[in-house]
Design a protein around this nucleic acid. Structure first.
Length: 805
DNA sequence: TTATGCACTTGC
DNA sequence: CAAGTGCATAAG
């Protein structure tokens, strides 16, 4: 029997990023298994932390005194073999701590809460008991140790044995219970009880009948009352007569009441959908580790392909995982999946409370749910026997986590597909260049849905040149053609959606006469405005020049920062169209839980004519009465100093265009821009993804960007700008000889937003095609910089970053 | 992350 | 000389 456990402790540092050996107390030796959470003493003091058992064994290569496990938190492992392997892989591939990865994979409530307490001992003097504890057995340490004097006083008391420090390790996971009823009688006893009931006591008879129906099972009191039409008073009578007992019944917090979701049947597929579904089904049935790119224009019916493929996995007795960008924004998707698979569906996304997430997680873990729909972190859902993984809108940047562990859900999905021998479907109307390029090379199999299901043409797109618009009339967020179109929809009682692109808000300068954006002479990437130094900087190569007073291209003085807010836009529009009913959707108006859905519902029911919003309205909304989509400022993202600026702009414009004319009515899209000739905008006008892909690939090839190169971003930040900069230059010197001569190192450059939280940020970007030393070098880097970390310098590594700012 | 030991300063 | 402060160190 295993006596020793290898435990991963909850201390996220580089030097504790390895298992520690602990003695398993004899009583628990048969129970402690890998993947369970335990509480262990750690460090010289009385500190106790939560940990994960990675392995159990009879031997250890540690030759010191072992401490023993203090408590076992779980009855069954919360991380299974797959999850433990995934933890190790994730930590290595994202250069983050294993404990952080383990915690990322589990619901937040499973992370321990620590409470440092001061406790009384047998020898506590009455004075101390009174003054410090006010008669209680323990007090919160921090509340009685606020000054250094108090701390040293407590240390003295501790040395004298009058008090002791105790770490309370709290498991935040709570099960919700409801009052349940359960009969205490056998079937025969219930029958005889029926005979003792006085005639006319109909409710009591109903109660007994109900109890008999339960067959010894437990049911919540509420459900019982509803189903058998008895009151709580009758139940109380039954309890007094000894027919039943009331028990605490564990219930799941259900974020969606399944009852009001309409069940749907599989739809008839068109030829293209059928081909795609057949290929995926074939791969599911054959347990092929295969990745498909399902490329389908908006409205081509990708979802139906997903649903029928999921059905195929379920038919094989397997489970399915379906990832969506940010599910709280796409309630329609949840409804469709739940409508098809009902109770077999579990939903995981950021809009749920922690308790709800925990309950959904347990339903999956207990194999009560076979289909999981969720956002990024749902990729870790504890499904067994996965038969299919789907990633909808695979190009969405929300699949990449911004802080440690900086993983991309797509990578995790591919890893799990290897583990489970199952296919992955990456779906999008505008795939990321990386994915589309892999399909080109045959790494992924490409499935195309070129036709819209309803055979409706894609909406017509008009590009409006804001340079000439501004010359014609006073400065406004609205061009004349857009206003005419808006008025026209008002008159026809049709709805309009206006999108204000907030990305890249005023961090670059643009000439309002010719549309010129200042670019770096070395990198062909927009220069970023730094108000602190009053310069324009390139944050790729570090090039720096003064802020221009006139446009270098046309010598106009109309060169200035670019950007505006939704509130301002709403005000202006209301002025221009006093009769229009407008809904504004942005971070301000949707901060409250459910506010987003409420606003959308309001718009959907026709209570407003115009919806104004930021990027969040680009996806998922599907309203048949919307026939006009306007993009007020298509350029802002183009101005960003990021080689993915064009890709994002193209994707966003294509997506938002898809919102017009979803049903019978034909849609029209107006795109206002200062760069009408920019290729991202031109290709978006013609809904030409293939054209864009080819053009953009050529640009990436020329610039040496992904997917032709892999990238790693290293950032350093410090309260002192000089230290951050100096360390980064040293780091560059340190890296160069360790990496392949072919590898390109860019920087160090200050981040465009140089000071965040009073810290200064610098970055180095590594670009490489093949770099065998990468993992070793970066791991060494993390080890060697930990001394500096303690002095305040923070180092971060982001593999394949999506944002370069 | 955090408690402790040790080197060093400060106060009487 | 005792007490107080600050930083390096190791954690099983």
């Amino acid at each position: 029997m295993a006596q020793i456990a290898q435990v991963l402790v909850d201390v996220p540092t580089m030097q504790t990023n390895r298992p520690y050996s602990y003695q398993i107390p004899t009583a628990w030796q048969s129970q402690v298994t890998p993947g369970m959470r335990v509480v262990v003493p750690f460090g010289r003091g009385k500190r106790r932390v939560q940990g994960f058992v990675l392995k159990t064994s009879d031997v250890t290569n540690f030759d010191g005194d072992l401490k023993a496990i203090d408590a076992v938190v779980d009855l069954a492992p919360v991380l299974n073999t797959e999850a433990l392997k995934m933890t190790a892989w994730l930590a290595a591939s994202t250069f983050s701590f294993q404990i952080t990865c383990a915690q990322t994979m589990l619901p937040a409530v499973m992370r321990a809460k620590y409470e440092k307490q001061l406790r009384r001992t047998a020898t506590t003097s009455p004075t101390v008991a009174e003054q410090l504890f006010h008669g209680a057995a323990s007090v919160d340490f921090d509340s009685v140790a606020t000054t250094p004097q108090q701390v040293s006083e407590l240390l003295r008391l501790q040395a004298a044995g009058e008090v002791e420090v105790y770490y309370q390790v709290k498991n935040q996971a709570r099960h919700k219970t409801q009052l349940g009823v359960k009969t205490t009688l056998t079937a025969a006893e219930l029958t005889s009880a029926t005979e003792t009931v006085r005639g006319g006591a109909k409710k009591q008879l109903a109660l007994l009948k109900g109890l008999a129906t339960l067959n010894g099972e437990t049911m919540t009191q509420k459900a019982f009352c509803d189903e058998f039409d008895v009151s709580e008073a009758v139940i109380r009578t039954g309890e007094q007569k000894g027919w039943l007992q009331k028990v605490a019944l564990e219930v799941y917090r259900d974020p969606y009441a399944t009852s009001d979701i309409e069940a749907t049947k599989p739809l008839k597929l068109n030829a293209e959908q059928q081909v795609a579904t057949d290929r995926i089904t074939q791969a599911v049935n054959g347990s092929e580790t295969k990745t498909f790119l399902l490329e389908g224009v908006t409205g081509s019916g990708k979802t139906e392909v997903y649903l029928q493929s999921i059905a195929a996995a379920l038919a094989q007795g397997k489970t399915a995982l379906m990832l969506v960008p940010e599910i709280s924004l796409t309630p329609q998707m949840v409804r469709r999946v739940k409508g098809r698979f009902g109770k077999a569906v579990a939903v995981l996304h950021s809009g749920l409370s922690n308790g709800e997430k925990y309950d959904e997680w347990r339903r999956i873990k207990r194999q009560e749910a076979q289909v999981v729909v969720g956002a990024r972190s749902a990729v870790f859902a504890p499904l067994d026997k996965i038969g299919l993984i789907i990633m909808d809108e695979e190009h969405e940047s929300s699949y990449k986590q911004d802080d440690a562990p900086r993983y991309h859900a797509r990578q995790v999905a591919l890893w799990r597909s290897q583990y489970h021998d199952c296919p992955v479907v990456l779906g999008s109307a505008t795939p990321s260049l990386e994915t589309r390029a892999r399909a080109e090379k045959g790494v992924y199999e490409r499935l195309v849905l070129a036709d819209r299901v309803n055979r409706r043409p894609l909406p017509e797109v008009s590009i409006i040149d804001m340079k000439t618009e501004l010359q014609k009339h006073a400065e406004s967020n609205f061009s004349a053609p857009l206003l005419v179109a808006l008025q026209d929809r008002l008159d026809r009682h049709e709805q309009s959606v206006l999108m204000l692109n907030r990305r890249g808000y005023s961090s670059f300068v643009l000439c309002r006469d010719c549309g010129f954006v200042l670019k770096c002479p070395n990198c062909d990437i927009s220069l970023t405005l730094h108000m602190d130094t009053h310069t324009m900087k390139c944050h790729y190569c570090g090039h720096e020049e003064p802020i221009p007073r006139t446009c270098p291209n046309c010598h106009s003085r109309q060169i200035r920062y670019y950007g505006t807010g939704t509130e301002k836009v709403e005000e202006e529009l209301q002025d221009l169209m006093p009769d229009a009913r407008i809904i504004r959707m942005d971070n301000d108006t949707t901060r409250k839980k459910g506010a987003h859905a409420k606003l959308l519902a309001k718009f959907g029911s026709g209570e407003a004519d115009i919806l104004i919003g930021t990027q969040m309205i680009a996806k998922g909304l599907d309203f048949p009465n919307v026939t006009l989509v306007g993009v007020l400022n298509a350029d802002t993202a183009l101005g960003l100093p990021d080689f993915r600026a064009s890709e994002r702009t193209f994707q966003l414009l294509t997506q938002v265009s898809g919102r017009a004319g979803r049903a019978e009515k034909t849609g029209h899209v107006y795109i206002q821009t200062f760069n009408p000739d920019h290729y991202a905008i031109r290709f978006a006008k013609h809904h030409d993804y293939e054209g864009f892909f080819k053009y953009e690939m050529a640009m990436r090839h020329q610039g040496g960007y992904p997917p032709y190169y892999f990238t790693v971003q290293i950032t350093a930040s410090d309260l002192d700008e000089g230290i951050a900069a100096k360390r980064m230059y040293q780091l560059l010197q340190w890296l160069r000889p360790r990496l392949d001569p072919q590898t390109i190192l860019l920087g160090p450059t200050p981040k465009p937003i140089a000071r965040v939280n009073r810290r200064y940020y610098y970055q180095i970007v590594i670009k490489y095609k093949r770099e065998p030393n990468l993992e070793k070098t970066l791991t060494t880097l993390l080890h060697e910089t930990q001394a500096q970390q303690r002095q305040g310098l923070q180092i971060g590594i982001d593999v394949e970053p999506l944002h370069f700012m």
